[in-house]
Each structure stands twice: as C-alpha cells, then as structure tokens.
C-alpha cells in the first residue's frame, strides 16, 4: 500500500503537483497496480541476468566529425519565452 506521503514524494521527484483528490486516486491506483506486479517477486530469478537491450548490439559509435548546427531562430522557434538568443525561465529560487 502506498501512503499519501509516498505519493507526494514521488510527485515531487517527477515534478508533478497533485490536488488532494488526485493524491487519493493515484495512491489507490498505484497500490492496485503494484499489488498486481508484486507477483514478479514470486519468480526465482537468481542467476538470471537483466535484459536492458533485446538486441545483442555493442560499441555503436559515430566518428568525431562536426555536422550542421540549427539556425538559432530554429533552436528558439518553439521556445515559450526567450530573450535575445537565450531561453528565458523564471527565477531559480
């Protein structure tokens, strides 16, 4: 069971602000889902390596060769706010 405090902690980590109702609903739903996934722990996976990549690829590289940059107006083309050629954000603290 996930507590409201857990929900709040996770929401902060994920940068989501939840209303009181949302906290309740997500707490309940996450608990249900986690209850369902708990069955994974019944499996004995000792000695089983984790699969992070299904394909057996390794050492995929590019050469150290420069390519084209984006024109700066394209870089900032979707910016919600800008000042000159900088992205503009609210004060940090």
């Amino acid at each position: 069971m996930i507590s409201i405090k857990d929900v709040e902690h996770v929401a902060l980590l994920a940068r989501l602000s939840l209303t009181g109702d949302e906290k309740q609903v997500y707490g309940k739903q996450l608990s249900d889902i986690l209850e369902n996934v708990r069955k994974l722990q019944d499996l004995n996976t000792e000695g089983v390596p984790p699969t992070a990549h299904v394909l057996d690829l390794q050492n995929v590289f590019r050469e150290d060769r420069a390519g084209e940059h984006m024109p700066v107006d394209q870089v900032l083309g979707n910016a919600p706010d800008r000042q000159g050629n900088f992205f503009k954000v609210p004060k940090i603290i």
Binding site: G67, E68, H69, M70, V72, N85
Partner: peptide, 14 residues
C-alpha cells in the same frame, strides 16, 4: 555532431 568550440554566441552550437 555539434561543435564543442568554446566561446560561441548563445545557442549557436546546438
């Protein structure tokens, strides 16, 4: 493939 060169104008090496 963006350049690492130091001192470019803002958001040029992107």
């Amino acid at each position: 493939h963006s350049s690492t060169e130091f001192g470019a104008d803002p958001n040029q090496h992107v």
